[in-house]
Computed example of a mutant assay.
Amino acid sequence: MQDLNNIIVELSELNVYTGFGYKLNIPYNYVVYFEKEQNKELSLYIRKNYEALKTKFASIDLNFIYQPLVMCSSKNLEEVIAYYFPQLNYYQIPNLASKEYSEKVIKQAVRVAADGIDEILNKDNFIPSKIDSDELLNLLDYKGNIKSGLLFFNMRHGAIGVSDFFNTNSNHNYELFFEEALFYLTPEKEDFALGDFSLDLSFLPNYSEQLDDDTKELVKDIENKLAELKDNGQILFLIPILKDLLNKQSEKIDFKSISKMEINSQNKIQLQYFKKEVELSHLTKAIYFLFLKHPEGINLKELGNYRKELLTIYTSVSNQLDFDKMAKSIDDVINIETKAIYTHLSRIKSAFYKIMDASFAKYYIVSGSGEDERIVLFNTKDIIWNNYDLFTPDML
């Protein structure tokens, strides 16, 4: 094994769980430079060799983050927060976070520009500004003794600093420091990465209906935007802003909470707490209302038993005047051999996935697979029906 003379390793119980769920936890593959006390030489070495260092860390699947050079942008930030944390819409936090983040981006750009000018004008005696790491260290709850170095999260959590041996060596070759740090952080073959990818997805129902193409594209786009926030290190600026905004709220936000549902007199489906409207076509909406009215679940093979009720709902919801045509549409839906019901269940699923992450959408869609019993997991007691009486067969 290689002798590690130039680094000192300090294992710590870093707080990588942000409280916002796994979507915004500190990524397992981050290696972040920090300073409790300014280390001019090390910081300057990183600035001059930043791209080469990022490439070396990437070769062992790690993402090296040097905060002063993180390229920040507030574009799409509000959209990402609102999608993965719909309950924050009630407090207007996505919008507030985007505004505060924009201000931070401007300040970051000014600092980088100022340092860039100083470096050009003073090539030989340029001194990089001290890196303000207090926000990061408080976020991670770091209580170690290393004054400057690297925070890591891949195998275990901890920090890597400059050793006494390195400090007594007049050469101060930081290439050796990073060489040993990379060697230490290189996982053994039997090791496996923990963090974002150690997810238990067993809570997700097994669906036979697929998302429509538009929804797949939208979800993929949102996922890519979140990945970009993580890949370029912007998440380290965003999380403290979100925490600060939530601390200012008088009410505690439960990130596992879901919204009550209101169906108004125009048959619009509103998720009050999320401040979202779920848009469905008239026939698909009628089918969704049928499942909401039967929290015990419905076996698709027995849909024929609900023909009269479904037709009653559809005539109340639809603006069509051709009763025979509406009846024909209902007959197609309840005939399992036409597979029309699966198309509508897919549309219901897609409608919710367009406005929120799967971890919340799963409560509202019609869960199940094949021809077996289908059920909406949402507690129907939390539905405010303004037109429930119109959906009873006796009205037909």
Rank of each mutant, 00 (worst) to 15 (best):
M1Y: 11
N15P: 06
G21M: 04
I26W: 10
K36N: 09
Y50M: 03
E51H: 14
N63W: 06
Q67E: 14
I81R: 03
L88M: 07
Y91M: 05
N95L: 12
K107P: 02
A113D: 11
I120H: 12
N138A: 04
L140W: 10
Y142L: 00
K147R: 12
S148K: 00
F153K: 00
N154I: 09
S170L: 13
F177G: 02
F183P: 00
T186L: 05
P187G: 05
K189Y: 15
A193E: 14
L201W: 06
S202Q: 10
L211M: 08
E228C: 07
G233Y: 04
G233I: 01
L242I: 04
K248L: 09
I253Y: 02
F255T: 05
S265N: 12
L271H: 13
L271R: 15
K276V: 10
E277Q: 15
S281A: 15
L283S: 07
L283H: 07
N299S: 11
G304E: 07
N305I: 06
Y306E: 01
T315R: 11
N319E: 15
Q320C: 02
K325T: 03
S329I: 04
S329G: 00
A340K: 15
A340G: 01
I341Q: 05
L345I: 15
L345V: 06
I348G: 00
S350K: 11
S359M: 10
A361H: 08
F378S: 02
I383H: 03
I384C: 03
L390R: 12
P393V: 10
